[in-house]
Nucleic acid binder design. Structure first.
Lengths: 356, 356
DNA sequence: ATGAAAGCGCTAACAG
DNA sequence: CTGTTAGCGCTTTCAT
């Protein structure tokens, strides 16, 4: 039987196009070359301690000679473990804070023997169902979501799939499974209080439609109103709403519009550090002194925040911490260990520099 | 037989842990619910025109009711088509130009029914072999590399796998398979000539160790020397070399160092737009007028380039074009259509704004 | 320490 | 238009 199959394969292979010909090195080929059974070859690669030194050497040699690369689809199909973690991010095109967390997480997961598969989730929530199904179709061992998943159908599919899920970068009492995040609303509140303490009396914000940025804005607006330091725009319930991704240009145009309706604004909370940088530049060009005339605070503590002048006051989230906690929760859960606390709040920190 | 298998599966399922229980909806379950054979169910989903309207309706209903999500490992194993394209990028953590191309490409590929799998290749070339093998292990239908692949072993595995490959963002006569890119060396040459035309006479560069940035630097240095406009640093063969990722801070420190050794420098070619922005800010803080006293040119035409003051003169590469060409070459090749020209040069364009 | 048999969930190929 | 049979490449399970 074995020889028949082998022959038929060889003849098929050689009659095919050149490009596709080499793709067919299987574990069976390796095993034959090494003079052992397929099962032994498999063990030599995945549970090396279970085979004799001699056998292992033979197999590894055959692997090297043949250029064998395992087919993880076959392995995953049979073993139900794909050693793959799916990471869903809103977008990779913008330099957003969560990309740093992704980077940290990737290192840990790769270390632990998992491969990460990044998917762009987009900013269009209506596509969540489709995108998620295409992820589940690959049967990852775990899924990390940037943001919450609110679509009922998506939540149901996720739960039904039995795949461990970590939602990140936000806070809720009702995660699908596990959560590592913080409250964006609270960030906004904290900035409003900070401005108040600093003696600012007419504050404004450059917000965005993206859910997390909007949450920060709402916290900021609510608290500013409560403290009586809301500028005209905040009082009227309006802000300068921008579409993601947030760019430097939005910071400039946002400040222009803020000053138009309310020339005495003395503090701006910008959607992200990139937007804040634009605000900073526009202020300087208009001869406003920062922070004396105008305080500018951003969000994210991007790489450049400490390298601009005046250095940017901002909100820092420990991305490495998010990455680390997410990775370890996931790995534990995959190995059957329930997390001590499935909802983890990593908090945030106001980094006071020079701009406000 | 069918009913026996069904029974055993049901009993197994119900005795398992809750979390894993729902994951097991298979096409067999759907077929049974719809009262058709598995094959017909498969056709109803993948080749709907081959089944009757009635059957299709039955199957789709069963899919919706059961929450079935196909297992693409099984499909790929059998059909040899995974409908997955692997994209290897150096890093996602830095706002680099190629991320914009990735975004454009993703849209086209998703449109065409492919899923993209992003892998971080890192800046450490010695890991190429391992990273590549882990990609091949997933048997993508196509691979897109950001940059060239120079490791002999990796090239061999890639060729042997028979997977169509497009190398991007660089130029060479010897691609593994297909190539969509441009010459970074030529970019450097073009900037040197541009500075020369503008009457600049002591030029310098803030370079980086990353291969493509280094290539731009070499083109720039060679041509500047030839034209006799090289500042002292370039004449001495030195530059201000930074490690990736290139940051704003490097632009500031780079200019400081450039002026220290050669106070009369009148033009700087920076590694990326982010670095150029730093150069710009440092120049302004030192009271240097840009572009009168100092010309600053970047690379990448990042989103903010046209929104800073003075607006940044830079080099633009049409990322959408790269994305589009790469995607279509790949899709064609997968469908058996050989590209008219496997090496495509997309060129670049100097975008003249205000900074130089 | 090693091997043989069975089967993961799906689709190619062929038959009706 | 629909069904049957076989098997993708690997690992689980059981036997030796």
């Amino acid at each position: 039987m074995t020889s028949i199959r082998k022959d038929s394969k060889v003849s098929k292979t050689t009659t095919r196009l050149g490009r596709r010909s080499g793709g067919g090195v299987t574990l069976t080929d390796v095993a034959r070359q090494a003079g052992v059974s397929v099962m032994t070859a498999s063990r030599a690669l995945n549970q090396p301690h279970l085979v004799s030194d001699d056998t292992r050497k033979q197999v590894l040699e055959a692997v090297a000679n043949s250029g064998y690369v395992p087919n993880l689809h076959a392995a995953g199909l049979r073993s139900k473990r794909t050693r793959m973690i799916a990471l869903m991010v809103p977008s990779i095109a913008s330099g957003s804070a969560f990309l740093l967390a992704v980077h940290a997480m990737t290192e840990i997961l790769v270390e632990a023997g998992y491969q990460v598969m990044l998917s762009e989730r987009g900013y269009d929530r209506s596509r969540d169902d489709m995108v998620l199904d295409s992820v589940i179709a690959r049967r990852p061992d775990g899924i990390v979501l940037t943001g919450l998943m609110e679509s009922p159908r998506a939540r149901q599919h996720l739960a039904a799939s039995g795949i461990p899920v970590v939602e990140t970068w936000e806070m809720t009492d009702t995660p699908i499974d596990m959560l590592v995040g913080f409250s964006h609303y609270d960030v906004g509140v904290a900035i409003a209080r900070y401005f108040h303490e600093q003696g600012r009396r007419r504050v404004a914000s450059i917000a965005a439609t993206e859910a997390r940025t909007a949450a920060r804005f709402h916290g900021f607006a609510d608290e500013a109103l409560r403290l009586g330091i809301a500028g005209r725009h905040l009082q009227e319930g309006s802000s300068f709403v921008i579409e993601p991704p947030s760019q430097l240009g939005h910071g400039r145009s946002g400040l222009v519009r803020a000053l138009e309706g309310d020339p005495d604004v003395d503090a701006i909370f910008s959607a992200t550090d990139m937007v804040a940088l634009g605000t900073l530049m526009e202020a300087q060009l208009r001869g406003l002194r920062v922070p004396e005339d105008l305080a500018v605070v951003g969000f994210g503590d991007f790489d450049f925040a400490c390298n601009v002048t005046p250095a940017l006051t901002t909100v820092r989230v420990d991305h490495e911490d998010i990455g680390r906690r997410t990775a370890s929760m996931l790995i534990n859960r995959i190995e059957g260990i329930a997390p001590d606390n499935p909802i983890q709040d990593v908090g945030f920190r106001l980094v006071r520099r020079e701009s406000g």
